[in-house]
């Protein structure tokens, strides 16, 4: 696919919008067109919600959703499942961005699920897996019939098998062996009463694609995606951020170094990497020569077991 842009000898283009000023890569063009097509397939749903955490993938997803439905407002509510362990600058970014788009932001807290007793936290204290319970509770509360997420197939092996339109039964469960075949772009959007659809418009994007698109579209991100000074403790090859939630353990020596985050999630299981990359261009350059995967470098929750993600997904996790 190739786009042709307006040149001087072309017929005048009607409407007030100016012609596209930048030439983009064929690869990003194909990915963007595909994602916009997927998002527009949501137009038949009664109550779709877009999962927006303020992380980079959801920021790209929101940007695409706005593009897909311009000049109309994107027909989605924004939903964030807050573990209560999020970085404050990410939450601030989430709120600002939601306000700018004019889309309603719904926040549901894992803390409330703990109080209700529907979530019990394991000995490691991580609330990441508990998000699935709160997410399904929110899905039922608002009767969302589609939940749109920024998960990518390149992130992790269980996600590599995910459909673009992924059916969830009335229990919200993913059944990897009973997935509907997905043919061409002819998505099967049919769901029964109480069921819902998970939709993944970024399925075919890689980490490098996401960064290249952030550069091309000048998409704003929370500051902790770029190099900043932070107090950390080195342990098991990871850098653990020292925060009020995760103080340095007795005897551990912390240090202040320049780091950035590759993924942003629950503070208790998300680690930064050492980096001087202060711009999206520099991050992309590092991404292209990275030797450790995005989740492998930074996520304690996937590390415990190679099947960890699959189990969480079966239970309703994104």
């Amino acid at each position: 696919m190739r786009l042709a842009y307006k040149s001087d000898d072309d017929a005048p283009v009607s409407g007030e919008a100016s012609p596209a000023p930048v030439r983009v890569s064929a690869r990003l063009e194909r990915l963007e067109a595909e994602s916009v097509y997927i998002l527009r397939e949501l137009s038949g749903f009664a109550r779709p919600a877009l999962l927006f955490s303020g992380g980079k993938d959801s920021a790209v997803l929101l940007h695409l959703a706005i593009k897909a439905f311009a000049p109309q407002k994107a027909p989605f509510k924004l939903l964030h499942i807050d573990t209560g362990h999020n970085f404050p600058e990410v939450l601030a970014f989430r709120d600002t961005r939601a306000r700018q788009t004019g889309l309603q932001l719904i926040v549901r807290d894992v803390e409330d699920s703990i109080r209700r007793g529907s979530v019990r936290i394991g000995p490691d204290g991580s609330r990441n897996a508990a998000q699935a319970v709160t997410l399904l509770e929110a899905q039922q509360e608002f009767e969302f019939d589609a939940l749109i997420g920024g998960a990518r197939r390149d992130e992790e092996r269980a996600r590599a098998k995910e459909r673009v339109f992924s059916h969830r039964d009335a229990f919200g469960a993913w059944r990897p062996r009973a997935q509907r075949p997905e043919l061409w772009g002819l998505f099967n959007r049919h769901i029964g009463v109480g069921e819902h659809m998970r939709v993944f418009p970024l399925s075919n994007w890689t980490e490098a694609d996401v960064w290249a698109y952030i550069i091309q579209e000048q998409i704003e991100l929370p500051s902790l995606y770029y190099a900043h000074e932070r107090e950390v403790v080195r342990r098991d090859g990871f850098l653990f951020p020292v925060t009020s939630l995760t103080p340095a353990e007795n005897g551990a020596t912390s240090e202040r170094i320049v780091v950035r985050f590759r993924t942003v999630g629950d503070i208790t299981c998300t680690c930064p990497v050492e980096s001087e990359a202060g711009s999206a261009e520099q991050v992309l350059a590092e991404t292209l020569i990275a030797t450790v995967s995005e989740r492998g470098a930074t996520r304690m929750d996937d590390r415990a077991n190679s099947a960890a993600m699959e189990r969480r997904k079966v239970e309703g996790y994104f």
């Binding site: 696919m1 786009l3 042709a4 409407g15």
Partner: peptide, 23 residues
């Protein structure tokens, strides 16, 4: 066709594979 847009911007031409909005 009065106009062809891609990503909210008017374009002079779109080809197979493009996601468009037309008037």
């Amino acid at each position: 066709i009065a106009s062809v847009r891609i990503g909210g911007r008017a374009v002079a031409r779109a080809e197979a594979g493009a996601s468009v909005a037309i008037e």
